[in-house]
Amino acid sequence: MPDSPLLELRGVNKSFGPVHVLHDIDLKVYPGQVTALVGDNGAGKSTLVKCIAGIYPVDSGEFFFDGKPVSFSGPRDAAGLGIEIVYQDLALADNLDIVQNLFLGREIRKFGMLDEATMERKARETLASLAVRTVKSVRQSVSSLSGGQRQTVAIAKAVLWNSRVVFLDEPTAALGVAQTRQVLDLVRRLADNGLGVVLISHNMNDVKEVSDHVAALFLGRLAADVETKDVTTGQIVELITSGRSGSMGLSAAATNASM
């Protein structure tokens, strides 16, 4: 482990009425590393992200950012700390152009008016720093972009604000081969720039290729948090589907209790 974790969760629990969705989740996100958050449908990935986003309040558990305890009671809290979340259904307005989308809700103003020149320049700088090559003009309407380009814009929007941790919810789910390549390269580049990246994915190839850690959720419990190079694709799949793989993962008692 090179550094201390940027974001750390300890013993997070969350229930919706009688349904216990998250059991004592511990998760660490390191700067400069990609942590893959995997798990089957209903394992609690989205709930966990929404708890960090401040959309759901947690029942118990602690959050540490930079080693200091923090709490997330609203979407602004996470953004204030530099945690950005790129959701699966990209939060982009089709009728606006790239610059307008990147700065949506955080427009730069001068004398009460929009400062288009500064925003356009910054948008270009951000896209350039992410080495985005496929966008012809930052004044293109988002509706005219391909799926990969849209994903890129959504990610650029998240990193535009000097964010330190980025959650990516299935960024390659709807993309073709070349576009997936583009986005995975971008994910790697984010980590290389020193950000803590959490990649939520169902695609084991993506996980093996781009991540440094794998955190597997099984029915609301953290089955394992291991380094990617120590596990095979088969083992990750086992962790996802049955909560354990050989010596790794949950005890038989825990998995049975969850069933």
Binding site: A93, N95, L96, Q100, L104, G105, R106
Partner: peptide
């Protein structure tokens, strides 16, 4: 103005606007 920009955003994708704060 930012108000005008937000108006277009809400009309284009209200959920995106909401998530943008």
């Amino acid at each position: 103005t930012a108000f005008g920009r937000h108006l277009y955003a809400v009309g284009g994708n209200a959920e995106a606007a909401r998530r943008a704060g």
